[in-house]
């Protein structure tokens, strides 16, 4: 039969006592709580300590916050409160609109703002990316075709320029001019 170790009162390790206290006050994590509860079920000393702490914790948590006497709010001297009058500003307006309200209202306001911003931003994003793959490929093909036409036009122009225009309109007249000048020089030489 396995020997089960029971703790004596003065032998209880500090870490274990801390765990017991946290468990009693509902401050322990899930696994810590289970560990302590299991130990408490096995060991009577731990069980008693846990029970005592739990009872105290229950009493502590049942204590209500003392209510501030109403007359205390009424007898605050008006003069002192009025001695520092704040000027209305954008910050104060923003505060009053958004934050000077119960927490639930603030939460709803923040949620709505985030929703509206998200919708606007997502729609804008979609505007830049609303083409499908087929459209992109078609655009690419059309661009290539257009560039090919432009390339062909350039090639034709170059050929016309070199073969026809330069030969016919430039080289030929220059050659003829030079021939004429040479002929004149030759004729003049023969006469002399």
């Amino acid at each position: 039969m396995a020997h089960r170790k029971y703790y004596k009162k003065d032998e209880l390790p500090e870490y274990l006592l801390n765990s017991i206290v946290r468990t009693a006050y509902n401050d322990a994590g899930f696994f810590e709580k289970i560990r302590v509860e299991r130990l408490a079920a096995k060991d009577p000393l731990i069980g008693n300590i846990l029970k005592d702490y739990k009872e105290t914790a229950r009493s502590v948590h049942s204590i209500k916050i003392e209510e501030c006497p109403q007359e205390l709010l009424e007898i605050i001297p008006e003069r002192r409160l009025n001695s520092r009058i704040g000027k209305p500003s954008f910050t104060v307006d923003l505060y009053t609109t958004l934050l000077s309200k119960p927490v639930s209202t603030i939460a709803v306001t923040v949620l709505l703002t985030i929703t509206v911003l998200s919708v606007v931003l997502l729609n804008r994003y979609e505007q830049f990316n609303n083409y499908d793959k087929a459209e992109v490929e078609l655009a690419s093909r059309q661009t290539k075709y257009a560039l090919a036409i432009i390339g062909k036009v350039f090639n034709t122009t170059t050929k016309s320029l070199t073969d026809e225009i330069l030969n016919e309109k430039v080289s030929k007249p220059i050659n003829e001019g030079i021939k004429t000048v040479n002929k004149i020089f030759i004729d003049e030489g023969d006469k002399k």
Binding site: I65, E66, E67, C68, P69, L72, L73, L81, I85, G86, P88, V92, D93, Y95, T96, S100, K101
Partner: peptide, 20 residues
Amino acid sequence: KHMQTKYQFLIQQYKNNIYS
């Protein structure tokens, strides 16, 4: 008025905590 609203809000929220 804004200051008073803010003040009233804080007092209503925390008066019992302060006193307690």
